[in-house]
Computed example of a mutant assay.
Amino acid sequence: MPGGGHRIAFPRPVTGPLVQVTRRLLLALLVLVVTVAIVYADRGGYHDAADSSVSFLDALYYSTVTLSTTGYGDIVPYSTFARLTNTFLVTPLRVVFLIILVGTTLEVLTERTREQFRLTRWRKKVRDHVVIVGYGTKGRSAATTLRGRGMPKDRIVVVDTNPKAVQGATEEGYVAVAGDATHSDVLLRAEAHQARQIVVATQRDDTAVLVTLTARQLNGTAHIVASVREEENAPLLRQSGADSVITSSGSVGRMLGLSLLSPSVGRVMDDLITYGSGLDLIERPVDPSEVGRAPREITDLVVSVIRGPRLFDFDDPEASPLRPTDRLITICRSGSRPDAALG
């Protein structure tokens, strides 16, 4: 396959191969049954070189060799009506039968043409999208959160080496690239060089480092968020070009500790990181009515204020008053801020 075995898969309706084969067999059988019925109904207009009469078995035999274009010539239509029937009924049925037989080849050619057209159209319009490398538990959760924040599915591209993960992503409506994201050509197929954000959610820390290095080399402006298992590898991810690094083992450990010390705190934290229910932690721009006010005077519970490259705590004196270009990280009721930015 071109491109070193890598491919781009688009969302499509899922129909199993057994179902497709069964449908074609039933359709071919239907064509055969109709042809046999036509021939047997007008059996008096046919001549059999063996015994001059046409039985049901003879009609079945004639229909089979006729539809398959074998045509031995031992049974032939000789009456005017039988010849007209063969011309206007049996011949079209023969064409349909042949189309069914070569349908697989035609379908493959049509599918390849369709996929090429979709690929060309997709490459022309995909810009400022999100590339998710690794579609395991972390990658799926990231995609679900993005979708919950209102991001369209066509702005999310999944990259994974596992064919089942790629199939799962396409079944959920995402464009997916099958291949190793440590190779630049795979990320180029995902248009990572034009992505706005890249999520690295691989299973291994060393793979995450290589993917981050490759992604940063291709795209110097994208915001890269990477996940690692061990805390000691976080600095290496940042040196590789990651803007944010999430330590999965450390985060889980802290959640476990919080839940042990205070089950209520653990439930609240779980609620905050689970988008779409209860409380949500979001980033949003400052409303015009909030400009000039202190973070504590805002209706939403402000956690931090983002001003340019700097991040202020809500109680930092430098965070007040709020400016029009500031962004707020707030805790609000789920669904109360449908216009919250995706970041």
Results as ranks from 00 to 15, higher is better:
residue 1 M to K: 14
residue 11 P to R: 09
residue 13 P to D: 15
residue 13 P to C: 00
residue 14 V to K: 01
residue 20 Q to P: 00
residue 24 R to P: 02
residue 25 L to W: 15
residue 34 V to L: 13
residue 41 A to M: 10
residue 42 D to C: 00
residue 50 A to I: 08
residue 53 S to R: 03
residue 58 D to K: 01
residue 70 T to K: 10
residue 76 V to Q: 01
residue 78 Y to G: 00
residue 78 Y to R: 08
residue 82 A to D: 01
residue 85 T to A: 06
residue 85 T to G: 07
residue 90 V to D: 14
residue 91 T to S: 13
residue 94 R to C: 13
residue 95 V to Q: 13
residue 98 L to T: 14
residue 100 I to C: 04
residue 101 L to M: 07
residue 102 V to M: 08
residue 117 F to T: 02
residue 119 L to N: 07
residue 120 T to P: 01
residue 122 W to R: 12
residue 124 K to Y: 14
residue 129 H to C: 10
residue 129 H to L: 07
residue 134 G to P: 11
residue 135 Y to V: 00
residue 136 G to C: 10
residue 138 K to G: 05
residue 145 T to G: 02
residue 147 R to M: 08
residue 163 P to G: 04
residue 168 G to T: 06
residue 171 E to R: 12
residue 174 Y to Q: 03
residue 178 A to L: 05
residue 181 A to I: 03
residue 182 T to S: 10
residue 185 D to E: 02
residue 186 V to Y: 03
residue 186 V to M: 02
residue 202 T to H: 10
residue 205 D to Q: 12
residue 208 A to Y: 07
residue 209 V to F: 07
residue 211 V to T: 03
residue 212 T to I: 15
residue 215 A to M: 15
residue 221 T to Q: 06
residue 225 V to F: 05
residue 228 V to K: 11
residue 230 E to C: 01
residue 232 E to N: 11
residue 234 A to E: 03
residue 235 P to Q: 12
residue 241 G to F: 07
residue 251 S to G: 05
residue 251 S to C: 08
residue 252 V to Y: 13
residue 253 G to E: 15
residue 254 R to S: 11
residue 257 G to L: 08
residue 261 L to N: 10
residue 264 S to Q: 04
residue 269 M to S: 15
residue 270 D to H: 12
residue 271 D to E: 13
residue 277 S to A: 06
residue 278 G to N: 05
residue 283 E to C: 11
residue 284 R to M: 06
residue 284 R to N: 09
residue 298 I to C: 01
residue 300 D to F: 14
residue 303 V to H: 13
residue 304 S to L: 04
residue 306 I to N: 06
residue 309 P to N: 03
residue 310 R to I: 03
residue 318 E to V: 09
residue 322 L to F: 05
residue 327 R to T: 01
residue 334 S to K: 04
residue 336 S to M: 09
residue 336 S to T: 07
residue 340 A to L: 02
